[in-house]
Amino acid sequence: MSNPQSPVISVAKVGKSYSRSGQKVSVLADLNFEALSAQTIAITGPSGSGKSTLLGLLAGLDQPDQGTITMDGIDITHMSQADLALFRAKTVGIVFQQFHLLQTLTALENVSLPLEIAGNKSAEAAALSRLEAVGLGSRSSHLPSQLSGGESQRVAIARALVVRPKILLADEPSGNLDTKTGERVTDLLFDLVRKEGTTLILVTHNEELAKRCDHRYQLRDGQLHRVP
């Protein structure tokens, strides 16, 4: 397992391309990148630069064409789908721009779901405590359709952090929220991440938000460039 000095995320010579209308489009090429434990890292870049593709690869939801990705000391590049699922359940939390809550489950059920998947017996109690931590204890029985955008994103954050993951991947967490709500949500996110020592990879267009991270990278021409 990792120590504070060894990288929690290590991406080496990763390449990814897609076929669009019969033409091969290279999105990521020979990409290298490392993140240490408890670091917060922002990745910015224009639309279509490959930010989402990179997040998908880090989450193990997609596989690179070349290169290796090591997360928490484990090479996930050639892992089976079942092992990847287990890996995600224990190690990675994800916050999406569009929240992606299950519409038929209540806030509490949404948050407890990752714990249930991991086989946790006291999932509900842990989920409720996490929901209280994001200030939504009183909305636990509400369905996503009964929640505001900010509340939905807070539930999504609670869901992402409920398993106490080592790595949190956040894709424009405030992108669908107004400025004030967005700020409140990101404050909460940074607060929780720092409190728990989670490594945060934050993809955003928002330069102000990016500046709040320990390190900033820009994704350009398929590679990450450090922003001073």
Partner: peptide, 16 residues
């Protein structure tokens, strides 16, 4: 299908 994708993103196996 979107829900199933979400489930996968939070650690569910595709078959499960």
């Amino acid at each position: 299908i979107r829900d199933l994708a979400i489930l996968q993103s939070i650690g569910a196996r595709p078959s499960s």
